[in-house]
Design a protein around this nucleic acid. Sequence first.
DNA 1: CCTTATTTGTACTATTTGGTACAGTATATA
DNA 2: TATATACTGTACCAAATAGTACAAATAAGG
Lengths: 188, 188
Amino acid sequence: MPREIAERSDTIAALGEVFRKHGYSGASLAEITERTGLGKGSLYHFFPDGKQEMAEAVLEDVSRWFEAHVFTPLQDPADPMDAIEHMFEAVDAYFHSGERICLLGAFALGDTRERFKAPINDYFTRWTDALTRALLRTGLTRTQARHTAEEVVVAIQGALVIARSRQDPQVFARTLRRLRQRIATARQ
Amino acid sequence: MPREIAERSDTIAALGEVFRKHGYSGASLAEITERTGLGKGSLYHFFPDGKQEMAEAVLEDVSRWFEAHVFTPLQDPADPMDAIEHMFEAVDAYFHSGERICLLGAFALGDTRERFKAPINDYFTRWTDALTRALLRTGLTRTQARHTAEEVVVAIQGALVIARSRQDPQVFARTLRRLRQRIATARQ
DNA sequence: CCTTATTTGTACTATTTGGTACAGTATATA
DNA sequence: TATATACTGTACCAAATAGTACAAATAAGG
């Protein structure tokens, strides 16, 4: 058995870049082969179902990253406020302080929503649920926690849209700052 | 001179539907001819620059709608709170209570951002500015007004993303409700 | 009615699309 | 080193792509 599946996972970052830049239908195999450095032969060896499978792999990868760096840490039994602060830092890092878009959000707005509705829905549901539970542990009521969690996830996605629309990543920074404060005051 | 340019403007609604559903690169001329009922001959007669010009026309149309129904009313010299309430109602109507996406936001996240950056940036800038001025007139400080306006526009876009992602338009309704309250309390 | 300009259907094209076929190469294990 | 398996490059394909050319139809103004 030659090279392990390491190669496959190596390509996922490059695939993510391509899909982020061109969207799903806009990402041509020509561009994909160029950016990954893999010929069609290898590409269809690793992803027999073609573009669909490549995009699925990228979405899974993003999901796993958030699961590990955001959702799971949010359930940490220690101080929930620390966990929430950790979420904001991870989110800021992941989205490059507003310069990177959310692939799941972008796919939700595009012609890709139907095709990828399961992973898209899962991602946002798990995020909202994990944050809700953390907020519950800070002392908020169930309703408060649910609404605040939704408000946070909504604002993060909105900030990514506006930051990109106005070509001003500061929107994202301001939004994160506001949300931190929003949670701090909601606890009183 | 035969038929006026009425036909051209008639097609814009249909074009909007197609772009909303398939995105820019995903919107094929085949689909466009079908949904507009116009053959390629007519299409390229009205839009000599093809898809690019069709999309530009749609974006302009959206912009004009918001100018007339949202931005201008926000400057109404009467009670600014009435103007803001009017904005929320117009927005709720335009986005079909969260079932319709924002074409400008979707284009901002896609491979179309560069191509249409001017209209995209204009749209969100004018919206934020108009709302800022209205909030100023309710008695907020300049900083408060600017931040609150940004928060509102961000939340509306975010709500559209999440509503579509989770296939739950209620997110949009809840967000609008929360924003109204947010503005009401910000004034004290 | 006749001229002029606008509108439209049809046939066409050059290019790109995603995907396949498959022979050949590399490589790890036994 | 033999062999089974994993990988990859190349040539290929049918379908779809955006866009063009242009003759025919339509409609209004004089």
